[in-house]
Amino acid sequence: MAAKSPVAPNSPATPGAKPAARSPRRRAREFVLQGLYQWQVSGNDEAAIEAHLGDTEGFDKADRDFFVGLLRGALAQRESLQERLQVYLDRPFAELSPIEACVLLAGAFELKNHPQTPYGVIINESIELAKGYGGTDGHKYVNGVLDKLAASLRPAEVEAKRAARSRSR
């Protein structure tokens, strides 16, 4: 799965600039995206995906437990996650680009099942994945959909953040 943009994910945008350090969780999310993409495009099962990605360069720097939990969870809950997401989509889930569909599945799973991670972090990580691997404006679509999903899954957290923003103005 290659990036569509001329600048690869986390590569310097300007000559001489250093790439941003990627945390083990960021790396895990990137591998989850690759795994979900493999599942969607080729139909590989979890075991084959995990074995293949486990041998991929850089996987040793990813948070393996987080990767496994996110990949397996998103695949196990894909039908219910797709139903939740569909409410906020402008077309059937099956008509989304494979990258945006996979980013949305992973983001939705994390929003639903990882309340210890702030929703803003999950959305920002999803946006970065969509920017790095998706179409030109796919990150905007991902942002809009996950923002609406977060408001329905985590209303108190979203409202508290909005209230804090309005107080700081």
Rank of each mutant, 00 (worst) to 15 (best):
M1H: 07
M1I: 09
A2S: 12
A3K: 04
P6L: 15
V7Q: 06
S11K: 14
T14V: 15
K18T: 15
A21Q: 11
P24W: 03
A28H: 05
R29D: 07
F31V: 10
Q34V: 05
G35M: 10
Y37A: 08
Y37G: 03
Q40M: 07
S42L: 11
G43S: 10
D45H: 13
A47H: 12
A48T: 13
H52D: 09
L53K: 03
G54C: 06
G58D: 05
F59Q: 04
D60K: 10
D60C: 13
D63A: 11
F66Y: 15
V68H: 05
G69D: 03
G69R: 10
R72W: 15
L75R: 07
R78T: 14
R78V: 08
E79Y: 12
Q82Y: 09
E83W: 00
R84P: 03
Y88D: 13
Y88R: 11
Y88Q: 14
D90H: 06
R91N: 13
P92C: 07
A94V: 11
E95H: 11
S97V: 08
P98E: 00
A101Y: 00
C102A: 15
A106M: 12
A108F: 14
H114P: 00
G120F: 02
G120Q: 02
I122F: 13
I123V: 13
S126E: 08
S126V: 09
K131G: 09
G132Q: 08
G132E: 03
G135M: 13
H139D: 12
K140H: 06
Y141G: 01
V142P: 00
V142F: 10
N143L: 12
G144L: 03
D147Q: 15
L149E: 05
A150E: 01
L153A: 08
R154M: 02
P155V: 07
P155C: 05
A156E: 12
E157N: 03
E157Q: 04
V158P: 00
V158D: 05
R165M: 09
S168P: 04
R169M: 09
R169G: 07
